[in-house]
């Protein structure tokens, strides 16, 4: 019981503080850098910047047909675990209960069995990501400690959650405490590594969309 109290209490509180503070610091730190104004006159008929940014955000959701072949596995697999994570995080009844206690918001839950199944699928997709990272020469070369840590801290909450849900390996309270601690670790690491792409992706794509939209290119 003590471990669970610690996990739910001080550990999670500190992790949340790090998460919110760190994300804001990083986002604001980047967005406040000087903006280099593009002074070249836009091409006639070019989309306005906001439209160009939105178009790029949408366009990069899926590879162009010519690249689909070589990137299909990575793309589909990424969608599986991204959507899987969202379903597990926001669809599980105990998670919704937790959020309701915290901030008073709630929404209908998905059936437990379905979420469990999605959790297993998500973990499998994450395992495939790791395998690819370890085996594919390009990924292996690009990967550093931060990438493996990001992977680990994403996979651990899913794995520990599945264990807790199936009451496997230890007392439920202990499993739950471990699950909460892995989430705390995930939240604490989030702002420092590449997990930040969850916020940055839209800005990054949007910036490219604005740069090239002005030139009359849908990039």
């Amino acid at each position: 019981m003590e471990l669970l109290d610690f996990a739910r209490g001080i550990a999670l509180r500190w992790a949340c503080a790090l998460f919110v503070g760190g994300c804001l610091w990083r986002l604001v730190g980047v967005l406040l850098l000087p903006r280099r104004r593009d002074l070249a006159p836009p091409r006639e008929g070019a989309h306005p910047p906001a439209v160009a940014a939105l178009r790029a955000i949408v366009r990069h959701l899926w590879p162009r047909p010519n690249f689909a072949g070589s990137t299909l596995f990575a793309t589909v697999n990424s969608y599986v675990f991204h959507i899987g994570l969202a379903v597990v995080v926001f669809g599980l009844a105990p998670h919704i209960l937790f959020v309701r206690r915290l901030v008073g918001l709630s929404w209908p839950a998905l059936p437990n069995n379905l979420v469990f199944g999605v959790g297993v699928l998500t973990l499998a997709a994450l395992a495939a990501v790791l395998a690819r990272r370890l085996v594919h020469p390009v990924m292996r070369m690009l990967s550093g400690a931060g990438d493996y840590l990001s992977w680990l801290l994403t996979a651990l909450p899913v794995a520990s959650g599945l264990l807790a849900a199936s009451h496997l390996g230890a007392r439920y309270e202990t499993l739950l405490a471990i699950h909460v601690l892995t989430i705390a670790a995930f939240l604490a690491w989030f702002p420092f590594g590449k997990l930040m792409h969850a916020f940055l992706f839209a800005f990054s794509r949007g910036a490219t969309g604005m740069r090239f939209g002005r030139r009359g290119v849908d990039s």
């Binding site: 020469p137 990924m139 990438d147």
Partner: peptide, 30 residues
């Protein structure tokens, strides 16, 4: 600038860019 920083910050090390680069596709060298 903010764009440069965003572009350095947001890389997820997925390696997909290799598939588009002629130097990689012509040689297979990571």
């Amino acid at each position: 600038s903010v764009t440069t920083a965003l572009h350095v910050e947001s890389c997820v090390r997925c390696g997909l860019c290799a598939e588009a680069c002629h130097f990689y596709t012509a040689t297979g060298d990571p």
